[in-house]
Design a protein around this nucleic acid. Sequence first.
DNA 1: CTTTGTTTGTTCGTAAGCTTTACTAACAAA
DNA 2: TTTGTTAGTAAAGCTTACGAACAAACAAAG
Lengths: 398, 398
Amino acid sequence: MTASEVQRGSSRSASAYPPRIAQGLAQGRALRPNGKIVPGDARGHNLSLVLQTLYRSGTQSRADIARVTGLTRVTVSALVTELMADGLVVELGQREDVRPGKPATLIDLNRAGFQIVGLDLSEHAVFRGAVLDLDGNILARAEVALEHRVGEAALALVIDLTRRLVSASTAPLLGIGVGSPGVVDLGGVVLTAPNLGWVDVALQQTLADEFGVGVIVANDANAAVLAEHSFGDADSDAMLVKVGHGVGAGLLLGGTPLFGSRFAAGEIGHVVVGTDGGATCVCGKVGCLETWLSIPNLTAKLAGSEPADRDAVLVEAGQRLGIALAPVVGALNLSEIILSGPTGLLDGVLAQATVETLRSRTMAEFHGFLTLRMTALGQDIVLRGAAVMVLSDSLGVS
Amino acid sequence: MTASEVQRGSSRSASAYPPRIAQGLAQGRALRPNGKIVPGDARGHNLSLVLQTLYRSGTQSRADIARVTGLTRVTVSALVTELMADGLVVELGQREDVRPGKPATLIDLNRAGFQIVGLDLSEHAVFRGAVLDLDGNILARAEVALEHRVGEAALALVIDLTRRLVSASTAPLLGIGVGSPGVVDLGGVVLTAPNLGWVDVALQQTLADEFGVGVIVANDANAAVLAEHSFGDADSDAMLVKVGHGVGAGLLLGGTPLFGSRFAAGEIGHVVVGTDGGATCVCGKVGCLETWLSIPNLTAKLAGSEPADRDAVLVEAGQRLGIALAPVVGALNLSEIILSGPTGLLDGVLAQATVETLRSRTMAEFHGFLTLRMTALGQDIVLRGAAVMVLSDSLGVS
DNA sequence: CTTTGTTTGTTCGTAAGCTTTACTAACAAA
DNA sequence: TTTGTTAGTAAAGCTTACGAACAAACAAAG
């Protein structure tokens, strides 16, 4: 078990950093239970602010950060000193410009110093995972076939996959992020995931215990919309509709994900669409969105229809999606909807039908602002979203 | 113009307090633009925290507040001293209990020391307003008939009404809150309000200039849902559907109102419902929610039908509301929907039809958690919501 | 009646954080 | 060489919250 030892060692050395950091910085974002603020909270927030500035704008000088953040150069210097001591920030030598004055010392996130493990459990037949750098680039991949395993067996598969990825990492881990199907609470407990046969599985805690690193588990569509926000073009208010074996959505409102009163926000697959019947769904209702739009149902319909009718099937599916989304778009005043799933099916007439339906069923004033497009992140959207969750949690970067 | 002078004097003396306070406390809630936190921000937050504790739990001692907030008695004493110097908190003598130890000195918000002016511009034929105390009790009322005035004339009416209410106040004003129909941005500019013929009316700024007090203007349904949260039983995730001349909604997610990317969140009146046609709406589309549910349309249908068919009309309206809300309930995982409007029409078979439709069109797991009820705040819901906005803005109380 | 213990609220000294002010280093331009 | 600008650091000061200690007030036990 040499691999196991290496991995153990790796995770231990990684855990030397994150606990302290994660604690120190998380305070800046989430208020403590009673809501009071102590000086240390302010410092945590400002540390996170410096990291965010570096993360978003890249290499720059302390003075640059001071100008952007409004903090003084003195304070920024102190914060940077602390972050360098923690290994999160590194100096990169002097700026090359020809300008008057003392040359700036460039600093940046220690982008090579940490890596992230991301997992995507949302696909039907495989668990996929990757090692990513802090910029969300994928450095290594791994996957494991599910072969209809459920419950404990599926959980063991997740742990195995994670172990392989942790071993494959070549720098201390900042954390592990997981996008899981189903309903996931804020503590990373998978409350229900029918396809995996999971009920109340404390996935986050299990992985944290196993690997000794910070772990974040969230719904796959929520992870995806975060990825689209960080790496795609999504602004702070967006809805990502993920079409696959089922249909789910992730909502971003004001830059923060929406979870819902029972952590089931975005579960629109089993909302009945329209008032003219439809097919009977596995859930027992008639005319659920999934009966029109899920990939199995859609491919079945396409297989059973003449090639000439292919477009009609896709248009109908797109219209149904538009009908279901119209009240949501109106109620939330959404301006951006993103589709994730098989491009061959979704992009084109289906998406076109969706946006036309949406525009014909909502208020004229908002049509101009409503955009609908495919994600540009492709298959890796959940993996990269999982990385965003880790970055957000342990660095306060968003 | 003696009344005018009195009102002027009143608003001036009121403005001696709020500016400083509002500034000091608002910082605790809204981050400054660049996002940094300085020690003063933390203090503002903690001052607000003490006020919130007093507001929610009423009269208590400094030591009680220390226990609840987690701050030390020392710190609480300092904060209370500052709040007393500002006139926001008063001592009420010693606690009467028979207990060992030094008797506690009771303190409370200076509930009699400030008043609030609230305005409701959302009714069809009248502008209504009131003077309220800090607990949301209505101390005085005033209203003015609209008589189809629009544009500048309607704005003048608002100013007149406000002037009368300011004169009627018997304590310094904490601020003025306004619930306006239409789309209102975060700066209190009414972007569009068709019924009033308003486009880009800077109502908040206008009133602030006129009366020299803090003013908050927001959409009427947003104000209503805040009232329901503070004075009714609504929890932190709720949707309030306001049925009147039009149909609008206010959304509360995680305790904060949702505004939407173009400040038009909740505008569901002109979302098309169902896939089986319907009446043509004034907006040009066919089957908008308002064609079924707005009070004018509903009463017209009731008048044109046999008394025996009355229930059928109401059931149909309720079902249409349910059809429109189902995707929203699913996407946001809402657990609470509140109806506001004429009880005689909405309560009963209509509401029953809505909730049944909702349950039959969304996922089974969430049925048990979904409640739908009428507001208990009646006609004054917007006025009281306007008061909540002022409290929230100037004291940080929510 | 005295003593003991509890609770409240204040005073004093300390630690932490950010700012202002002042300084040195480094370099361009005149 | 002089002047002016920019970067980064150092020292001092102000604000904020905390812990320790203490006085006041009172109940309950002895």
